[in-house]
Write a protein that binds this DNA or RNA. Structure first.
Length: 324
DNA sequence: AACGCGACCTGCGAGC
DNA sequence: TGCTCGCAGGTCGCGT
């Protein structure tokens, strides 16, 4: 489900619920959700219990919570004070269907509940943070925080730390990140020998864009997904990046306004999809831009990278050899 | 470096 | 009704 706007909605929601609270106990109901935690469920739970959540930070679609030992915890006897334990974080990736929900203890377990974290009491706030995931493409795991020279995780974190989760250090900044550099993006884009959509989906080049927003951005910029990246003019690259930024900003606003319940809802932007998508899922339906110009051009659906791509055959013509 | 593909999973709707 | 098929917004790792 989630692309950048959905993950950011979750992050913003989570911050207010979990920052400063201590994880008191962990239930792993399905170890498959910890696939990326190599040391197994016992190690996962053992390291989390007693840890305090410092913040909720995002890079692309990766979300993590830097952790600290609770003050007063005895230091591990085998560790000298001058050699403190490395900084760690609880990492979450939502995959296709993951959700992070704040729930009161008396709410029955969700059908696809995978991991439950109990948190220290904090006023009327729900006690549990639940990871629910139908398809299990997402997951939780612990990762170290390593120094970065690029100014921290960025994203829209409120208190960026000069550390980044190791497992997210290969992820580029996203177009909404204030430190995103278009010049650097364009330089790397031009150096690639690939198609434009493949590049937009490459989280190491620009992050946060998934299949839906890629199609929406390409439609808005009137560019075809197969356009060779080494032929893109600066103005065209700027157009598609601005389009991605616009589409994701709108989705974020829609998700943000519908976020008002006791839990953090990954589906915050689902209403947005119905109303505002111009390309994705609109096979056979008339292109709205062409319709406004008095033409009827039904959108095409094609297989590309083992998934569906939606384009208008008239205003996003497929590049032909040497001519576009 | 870039690609195409399979792997990882469950569930839903369409069609027979 | 029950079966199969295709489809779903992500990422990783392999062989070429």
């Amino acid at each position: 489900m989630p692309e950048l706007p959905e993950v950011e909605v979750v992050r913003r929601g989570l911050v207010s619920w979990v920052r400063g609270r201590t994880i008191t106990s962990v239930d792993v109901l399905d170890p498959r959700s910890l696939r990326r935690h190599a040391l197994g469920p016992e190690d996962f739970a053992g390291n989390l219990e007693g840890a305090r959540v410092l913040d909720v930070v995002r890079r692309g679609k990766f979300l993590w919570m830097p952790l600290a030992d609770t003050p007063g915890d005895p230091a591990p006897h085998n560790q000298a004070p001058h050699n403190p334990a490395p900084a760690v974080a609880l990492m979450a990736h939502l995959g296709m269907s993951g959700q992070l929900l704040m729930q009161d203890a008396r709410v029955p377990d969700e059908k696809h509940l995978k991991v439950r974290l109990r948190l220290s009491a904090a006023g009327d706030m729900p006690e549990q943070l639940r990871f629910v995931d139908q398809r299990i493409f997402g997951g939780l795991f612990l990762t170290s925080l390593i120094p970065t020279d690029d100014g921290g995780p960025g994203g829209l974190a409120e208190t960026p730390l000069p550390l980044i989760a190791e497992e997210a250090s290969h992820i580029a900044r996203d177009p909404l990140d204030p430190h995103f550099s278009f010049d650097a993006f364009y330089r790397r884009l031009r150096a690639r020998k690939t198609g434009l959509k493949r590049a937009l989906l490459d989280q190491g080049l620009v992050s946060g864009i998934g299949n839906i927003y890629a199609d929406e951005a390409l439609w808005k910029a009137q560019l075809h997904y197969a356009r060779p990246t080494d032929t893109l003019r600066r103005a065209e690259a700027l157009r598609v990046l601005d389009a991605a930024r616009d589409v994701m900003t709108d989705a974020l606003a829609a998700g943000g306004t519908s976020f008002d319940s006791l839990y953090v809802n990954v589906n915050g932007a689902s209403g947005y999809f119905e109303r505002s998508l111009n390309a994705y899922g609109r096979e056979g339906l008339p292109c709205r831009r062409c319709a406004a110009a008095g033409r009827v051009s039904p959108l095409l659906r094609e297989q590309f990278m083992n998934r569906s791509s939606y384009t208008c055959p008239v205003c996003q013509p497929r590049p032909r050899n040497g001519r576009w």
